[in-house]
Amino acid sequence: MMLRPPVEPMLAQAREGIPAPGTLPGGLALEPKFDGYRALLFTPSEPGGPVLLQTRRGSLIQQHFPDLVAAAAQLPQALVLDGEVVVWHEERLSFEALQRRAASGARTAEALARSMPAHFIAFDALQKDGQELVREPYARRRAVLESLFTEHSLGPPWTLCPMTTDPAAAQQWLEEWTEVRGIEGVMIKGLGQRYAGGSRGWFKVKRRTTAEAVVGAVTGSLARPQVLLLGRFDDHGRLRPVGRTTPLRPAAAAELSALLRPGGPGHAWEGVRFSAAWGSPRALEALTVVPDVVAEFHADTAFERGAWRHPVRFARVRLDTTVDDVPLFGAGQDPAEG
Rank of each mutant, 00 (worst) to 15 (best):
L126A: 04
E255D: 14
T246K: 15
A299V: 11
G201K: 11
L284Q: 12
P25W: 02
T43W: 08
H64Y: 04
V87N: 10
V215M: 10
R15A: 14
A39C: 14
T159R: 15
V289A: 05
R249G: 14
D35P: 09
T322C: 06
A139Y: 02
D325E: 13
G306Q: 06
E90F: 06
V272K: 09
Q77Y: 13
G190D: 09
V85H: 03
P281V: 07
A70Q: 13
L60A: 08
E151A: 14
R38D: 06
L229I: 13
D235Q: 15
S59T: 09
L259S: 01
A139P: 00
P47Y: 08
V134F: 11
T246Y: 12
I18P: 06
L148R: 01
V86P: 03
E255G: 01
Q54I: 01
E16N: 13
D320A: 07
T150P: 00
L11C: 02
D320M: 07
L284F: 09
W88G: 01
D320F: 08
V7K: 04
A170H: 02
P291I: 09
L259N: 01
A302W: 11
S257L: 03
G83A: 07
A315K: 14
G338Y: 06
E16Q: 12
D334P: 00
L133A: 02
L3C: 04
S199G: 04
L222F: 11
G48N: 01
G330L: 09
A315E: 15
A283E: 15
A14N: 02
P241W: 15
R142C: 00
T210D: 13
S280G: 03
D235M: 09
L93R: 13
A168F: 06
V186L: 04
E91R: 14
W269D: 08
Y195A: 02
R207N: 15
V86A: 12
T322A: 08
M187D: 11
W177L: 15
V186F: 02
G332S: 14
G36V: 05
Q131C: 00
G192T: 08
T164Q: 05
D67M: 05
H64S: 15
V86K: 02
P44N: 10
A336T: 11
E31F: 00
G182K: 02
R92T: 11
V186M: 03
H152D: 01
V227D: 06
S199M: 14
V227M: 10
V134S: 11
W202C: 03
Q193K: 01
F149W: 13
P167G: 02
D124A: 03
A307R: 12
V272S: 04
R224A: 15
Q63G: 04
P9C: 05
A217H: 10
P156R: 13
R100G: 12
A217G: 05
E296C: 05
P247I: 09
A169I: 10
H298M: 12
L319K: 14
L328D: 07
F42S: 06
M116I: 00
A258F: 00
F149D: 11
G279C: 06
A12S: 13
P157I: 05
E136Y: 01
V51I: 12
E91H: 13
R107Y: 00
A299E: 03
T23Y: 09
